[in-house]
Amino acid sequence: MAEVLVYVDHVGGVVRKPALELLTLARRIGDPVAVALGEGAADTAGTLAEHGAVKILTHDAAEYAEYLVVPKVDALQAAVEQVSPAAVLVSSSAEGKEIAARLALRIGSGIITDAVDLQASDEGPVATQSVFAASYTTTSRVTKGVPVITVKPNSAAVEQAPAAGAVEALNVTFSEQATGTKITSRTPRESTGRPELTEAAIVVSGGRGVGGAENFALIESLADSLGAAVGASRAAVDAGWYPHTQQVGQTGKTVSPQLYIAAGISGAIQHRAGMQTSKTIVAINKDPEAPIFDLVDYGVVGDLFEVVPQLTEEIKARKG
């Protein structure tokens, strides 16, 4: 069976969930060969093998942490040359898309970004994408070279599929461009203890209607009662009430959780672009005409300062 390269996003050896989702999709097309780079790369092997990686190519060098993007492109290109894969899958983070794009150009291939599903076909993998603020669904194929495809988080289930998972060292020679952009300092994001926004099964978001940074505590309590991630509209972010890392929408994160709860958010097209593919959508808004109500499975027309605390209490009571 053909091999499929999967670029593994990990933090110090802890594999991020989207990488495991990629393994699920890769198995539809062929035998997954994982590529893990940087500090802790070899520590990813156990988890990757459990989820279907037949082989894990690893390489560690200081360059991966000290310079932007290009060292990883060099490594992935080396892996492509070593494996001759049927496709290369990368998760659709900002960095993932940049790595994938540069790789595609180097190996003379086409690239598809932000796939939400992937199926095998006689003519190679077919990617489903959601476009124009998720108002259209398209299917596409790469027609030249080895298909390079980036996939959005939450596009597939994580599945156990034990495989050999043999660890092999990858030989990487860095290009002249590798050291072009130096990362002079890095401030890790403080952990909130909540799930990662793009990976969460439930997201609770607040907008301008929340009315102030201090009131986001209401949104956070509701989120915590459900084990959810917290999101925000751009209006709330621009007002300085919540960090930009949590913005949902066209210029923030795209989320596709099982449940999305929007409180005090009107539902502008740019916000919808980031959440419209959520399975179940719920909104709380005092304006019955708010466009968000066009999307909802359940909506409450009312004051979020009344509805949200009552909801949180009721959830806590039911969960006991």
Partner: peptide, 17 residues
């Protein structure tokens, strides 16, 4: 979807959903 107006029980109705 279902849209309800909060008459004091909106949060509870939402929890029920």
């Amino acid at each position: 979807g279902t849209i309800v107006k909060d008459e004091g029980e909106g949060g509870k109705q939402l929890a029920e959903f």
